[in-house]
Design a protein around this nucleic acid. Structure first.
Lengths: 245, 245
DNA sequence: CGATTTATTGAATCGACTCAATTGATGTGG
DNA sequence: CCACATCAATTGAGTCGATTCAATAAATCG
């Protein structure tokens, strides 16, 4: 089952027709990108809404002097920006971390959704509200959390989101981010990211090696990162809309 | 003219009917709050969508140990969260800075908008996309900008937003934030905010005294804060929808 | 396999923090 | 309208978390 369906089902139960149209758009207009490539660049006119099918990507901003900040990560099942139909210019860039395949979602698809698929329309809205909440939580992290709290928090967030999309096995998941990526996301230097990870490792909070992460006790890592999952709104909050099929 | 109308007109020209309905909802269901009070609290069920009529408010989050982060400011004409109809629980709190008066916007109003006032509906969408962009920019600030850059950037942002709502006179505006507020918003300590403001003052970048701010050269302050206004999307991006009345 | 990227370590430095005290505003009640 | 209380702003000194610079080790890739 596709990641988008799996994820949206955490908000509301979809009908077979709902699932069918999501499956359909996941196979049309598919594009592939190599690792470390830009999908869209700041200053450009936004062209399409993208659904991430496989791979990791990120949204980032850059200052004139080169300082870069990753402002969010995109995981399989995530939708990149519903701003296409409103805004004229990208205020950030979107780049791949790993190889990524995306499906472009057309205006027609959204029209179809909003006239005939109210559960999907609402679930998409939920998705974008959760993304806003994540962005606020990052503001909180960067403003108030210490280096190790920040790192623990980010790892918890990614793990929860991957689990929602069906991309974890028990306490483990693939983890393609380099320490440089983590530095750009947390606002720390690469060197300090390295030391912070060592700290988490030696407290047996994470096992991070190769491109794989394991979390022996999610509860302890959550405590370390002062992580409260409420902002992910995973609690089937749209259940009153459930399909009864 | 009300601040909300003034602001939305920067995106699209409204018709007399558009303006009338906005004026109507700005006078119904009005509530007043004293300074430093909560309008809504984390954990509660969201009750209404609020339109700020007058005064300044903020969205903030708090950790168990008391660390607080202001994640955004609300100025007159701003709308607090369209999440009411989707999410079940607030993941942050909303509190006033000054005395604030708000209008509660009903579900019926939004239904009315989406069926009969496409320009307003689109402008509201624009508003929420700009808010997301602002949140990303804060992530950038907290992650990459130095203390003085961060402060300069925040002051530029607030000045631009106030100007959009018609709340500036030449190079000056009311400025009710305390240094403690600025500290909670920038992730700096109060002491360092104080020193940072002195630095900006002695470079003649700002005149901040009492509850009033003046910016002798907005251009220089923007350079100091590495401020690029593109993320505010003020360039009449919805002009193709303009009312022709 | 060599080449390049990624991860690790050490040492010195610095930006921002904490603690603590003082000065200056603002506001309120008698 | 002053006296007192409270809140906001300022200053100094010492500290610490995180940075920079630089070098090396390990992993990954073509």
């Amino acid at each position: 089952m596709s990641h988008i369906i799996r994820k949206l089902e955490h908000f509301v139960h979809l009908s077979p027709a709902d699932r069918a149209i999501l499956t359909r758009v996941s196979s049309e207009r598919v594009h592939n990108f190599a690792p470390r490539m830009d999908i869209a660049r700041e200053g450009e006119k936004p062209k399409d809404v993208h659904l991430i099918l496989t791979g990791w990507a990120c949204r980032y901003k850059q200052l004139e002097d080169g300082r870069r900040q990753i402002v969010s990560f995109f995981l399989p099942g995530d939708i990149c920006d519903l701003n296409v139909f409103i805004l004229h210019e990208m205020d950030h860039s979107i780049g791949t971390i790993t190889a990524v395949s995306i499906a472009d979602l057309s205006r027609d698809f959204f029209d179809e959704i909003s006239s005939g698929y109210p559960r999907i329309a609402t679930a998409f809205w939920w998705e974008s509200l959760v993304n806003s909440a994540i962005q606020r939580e990052w503001t909180m992290s960067l403003g108030q959390r210490t280096a190790s709290e920040r790192m623990a928090h980010l790892l918890c967030e990614l793990f929860f989101r991957l689990r929602l999309a069906g991309l974890t096995r028990n306490d483990a998941c693939d983890f393609p981010l380099t320490q440089a990526d983590l530095a750009e996301a947390t606002g720390l230097s690469k060197v300090h990211v390295n030391r912070t990870l060592q700290e988490l490792r030696s407290a047996d909070l994470i096992i991070l090696k190769g491109k794989s992460l394991a979390i022996p006790s999610l509860e302890r890592l959550m405590n370390t990162g002062l992580f409260n999952a409420n902002y992910l709104h995973m609690d089937r909050e749209g259940r009153q809309l459930d399909s009864n099929e």
